[in-house]
Write a protein that binds this DNA or RNA. Structure first.
Length: 573
RNA sequence: CGGGGUGUAGCGCAGCUUGGUUUAGCGCACCUGCUUUGGGAGCAGGGGGUCGGAGGUUCAAAUCCUCUCACCCCGACCA
């Protein structure tokens, strides 16, 4: 491709509305342009990269025996009403009405539709298992779209749905997808981790998230180098170091309770400053209520945060934190404590305070706290558990190694759905025993447009994007430093023809502008190899080869060009 | 939805507090010519704006007031 025939508008300055590197680079490098909040158009270069990612995904899905289909974006309301997600999904769903006042939505995902379609055509266990996928646009009316392609309202996703007759079918497909996703990310050439995750609203027993490691990632990953345990921090298990919590065999002198005046001291931080006590000696009392308005209290060490996910799972109900308005016992928020708490409230203790003695807690009275609070004597706990997030220094539950923390971007998520949708949407088949049974389903998503942004997030420097060769829009950037030197221009044209003949994707910058701009644009757009026709060529027919990823430069004689091209062609395959 | 903020040329911004010497300006980008051409060149000339929209106050509005729309940031929420 000649630059003069291409459409590649680059920007020198950062756009004002981007606050994350992948967003500003994808705009500056001429990949995308914003059309509306969270909605982007792809320019030629961005579209080319997108297609490369799609193709890698497509190949690996096909290798894993998944079969490509294409479902509509627009879906009738009925199927979503049947699964009840028309109501559960809430305002995040783009809903539209046609001229006959029939309700539709723009698909945020396709479980309902695929299940309905399957039920119409898959009747027999002999047709199972089958795994169908598509690469399709999805719509979610995000509360707040941000970070460019990382959280857009219209985005491209590869979504696969497996139908099996047995749990074993599901396990096999799940495993095949797990492997396929790993291969996809490895082929693209990214650092990643697979973590155990919460399956959330979509249902299912457990799930895995595929995380691209990046400093700006929205998710926190917790992992153990020794045994390989890795989880999203939202449901990460962990153990405490001996030294970080009390040892119940070690008997301190149990002191008498004292009430202390703590005017307007409502937060742990305030208490630490006011009493000059470490936060580990303070009981944080978090009070939650379920939809039936039943209230529970959770006690944790002052340096810990309550993990609502874990607590919801533990109690088996959705919960919300109480506040001044919605709290039926009129609890003085900021001064709540376990001692003297209303007896109707069930109290649970986090391991982070287990065995600690002479602690500080709220006195359930505005502007007062207690000193020397002790479990058993001053309060009773119904049960102990792990209700908090791990912090640096905590240990792996399996092998007691210290846990590591990293930031990541979720690009893939695989779920075992079981029969959740097949039961609701009447997706049934006749098994070999003559009985009608619901399909056992799995669903597997990978964000294509998000992947593009995640690659930039992980692979860039101050000059711009650094594309891995697997998805680079062009392999070679052919630069002529002075287009008015006919020798240079003619030789570069020859090189260009040679590259094309060898099926190398090359962007030939034939613009009559200063060399500096060509270098900057080439670096910004992240093309892996620069092939430079300049001064050195005029002196002794030498071409400079520079690598975007910082590999050592090469001075190449013009006569060796063809060999070099053969070499890079090979490494590209 | 709550809190904060911004809309002025393709992009990035100044001007607004205190209305009129501003014919709306600057940098980048764009066009023409000449000189340049190994890391975002120089000189000269040029094009491009209903100052987000509607209404109002005023002799006079980018500037003040009201309404409205869009966008951004923080939070709750989420693949």
């Amino acid at each position: 491709m000649k630059f003069s025939n291409y459409f590649l508008p680059t920007l020198k300055e950062d756009p004002s509305d981007s606050d994350i590197i992948s967003h500003s680079l994808s705009i500056r490098a001429g990949l995308i342009r914003k059309v509306a909040s969270g909605i982007y158009a792809f320019l030629p270069l961005g579209y080319k990269i997108l297609k490369k990612i799609e193709n890698i995904v497509r190949e690996e899905m096909n290798n894993a025996n998944a079969i490509e289909i294409f479902m509509p974006v627009m879906q009738p309301a009925e199927i979503w009403q049947e699964s009840n997600r028309w109501y559960e999904y809430g305002p995040e769903m783009f809903k539209i009405v046609d001229r006959n006042e029939r309700d539709f939505c723009l698909g945020p995902t396709h479980e309902e539709l695929i299940t309905t379609m399957a039920s119409a055509d898959i009747y027999s266990y002999k047709d199972l298992p089958v795994n169908l996928y598509q690469i399709q646009v999805k719509f979610r009316d995000e509360i707040r779209p941000r970070y460019g392609l990382l959280r857009a309202r219209e985005f491209i996703m590869k979504d696969a749905y497996s139908f099996g007759a047995t749990e074993e079918d599901l396990d096999k497909d799940y495993e095949a997808m797990y492997d396929a996703y790993s291969k996809i990310i490895e082929r693209i050439g990214l650092k990643y981790k697979v973590v155990e995750a919460d399956s959330g609203l979509i249902g299912g027993k457990f799930s895995h998230e595929f995380m691209i490691l990046a400093d700006n990632g929205e998710e926190t990953i917790v992992y153990c180098d020794k045994c390989g345990y890795a989880a999203n921090i939202d449901n990460a298990k962990y153990s405490l170091k001996k030294s970080s919590h009390g040892n119940k065999n070690y008997v301190n002198e149990i002191k008498g309770v004292e009430e202390i005046y703590t005017p307007n001291i409502k937060t742990i931080e305030d208490l630490v400053n006011f009493l000059h006590q470490p936060s580990q000696n303070i009981i944080k009392t978090m009070v939650v209520k379920n939809p039936q308005d039943k209230v529970f209290a959770f006690l944790l060490s002052g340096d810990r945060a309550l993990n609502l996910n874990k607590v919801e799972k533990f109690l088996g109900t959705s919960l919300e934190l109480i506040n001044e308005e919605n709290n039926r016992y009129n609890l003085p928020i900021g001064f709540i404590g376990p001692a003297g708490l209303n007896k109707e409230i069930t109290v649970y203790g986090d391991y982070t305070i287990y065995g600690k003695q002479n602690l500080i807690s709220g006195a359930n009275k505005v502007d007062y706290h207690y000193k020397n609070i002790n479990s058993q004597r001053d309060f009773q706990v119904k049960d102990w558990g792990n209700f908090s997030y791990p912090v640096v220094g905590d240990l792996c539950e399996n092998c007691r190694e210290e846990l590591n923390f990293d930031k990541g971007i979720e690009v893939g998520h695989i779920f075992k759905l079981g029969t959740k949708y097949s039961e609701k949407l009447d997706g049934k088949f006749l098994d070999s025993d003559g009985k009608l049974k619901p399909y056992i389903m799995g669903c597997y998503g990978i964000g294509i447009t998000r992947m593009l942004a995640a690659v930039i997030e992980q692979s860039h420097d101050e000059k711009g994007i650094i594309w891995p060769e697997s998805i680079a829009p062009f392999l070679v950037s052919l630069i002529v430093t002075n287009m008015s030197e006919t020798t240079l221009k003619d030789s570069a044209e020859d090189a260009y023809e040679l590259l094309l003949k060898n099926k190398i994707e090359v962007l030939y910058d034939d613009r009559d502008i200063s060399a500096g701009i060509k270098f900057k644009d080439s670096d910004l757009t992240g093309i892996p190899i620069k092939m430079i026709f300049g001064k050195k060529f005029l002196q002794n027919e030498t071409i400079d080869i520079e690598y975007r990823d910082g590999a050592p430069k090469i001075e190449l004689k013009f006569i060796d060009l063809e060999n070099f091209i053969k070499k890079i062609k090979k490494s590209d395959e």
